[in-house]
Amino acid sequence: MYKKILLATDGSEHSKRAGEHAISMALCTKGSKIEMVYVVDSDKSKTDVLNNWNSADIGDKRKDRIRHVEQRMKESAVQFETKILHGEPGPTIVDYSNKNGVDVVIIGSRGLNALQELVLGSVSHKVAKRAECPVLIVK
C-alpha cells in the first residue's frame, strides 16, 4: 500500500535505522520506490562552504553522509532515488512530501542533541504534525 516512500535522512545513526525500515517497507509492496531526501540546512551553508573552501566539490561531502544508506538500498535491490534539497529541514520535508503525493514519510527521531532540540524543536515532530500522510518516526 505504500508505493512512494519518502525517507528523510541526515546521515545520523537514527536516520540509518530509518533507512532499514524504509527498505523493509519497500520490500513488502511490489513496485514501490524510496525517495531519499537530504535537506541542506541554509544555516549550515556558511559552515559547509568554509569547511570545503579548497576542495573541489562541496556536494561530495554531503553525498558521503548518505552513502551508507544508499549502499544498503542498492544491496536490497529496492528502487530508489536520491534528492538533495535546500532550506530549513522540517518545512522543506513537509513541503516536498505534500507536493509530491508521498504515501508515507520515514524519518529518524533525532539528529540533534537534547539542547539543540530544546532550542530548535524536533524536525521529526514538525514533520509528523504537518505532513498530510502517515509518518513513521524511527527511534
Binding site: 541542506v40 541554509s42 551553508s45 556558511k46 559547509d48 562552504v49 568554509l50 562541496i58 538533495i84 535546500h86
Partner: peptide, 12 residues
C-alpha cells in the same frame, strides 16, 4: 566571493 559561494550553495 565567500558570500557568493554561500549563496551558490544555498540556492543550488
Amino acid at each position: 566571493l565567500l558570500t557568493a559561494a554561500i549563496v551558490d550553495d544555498m540556492t543550488d
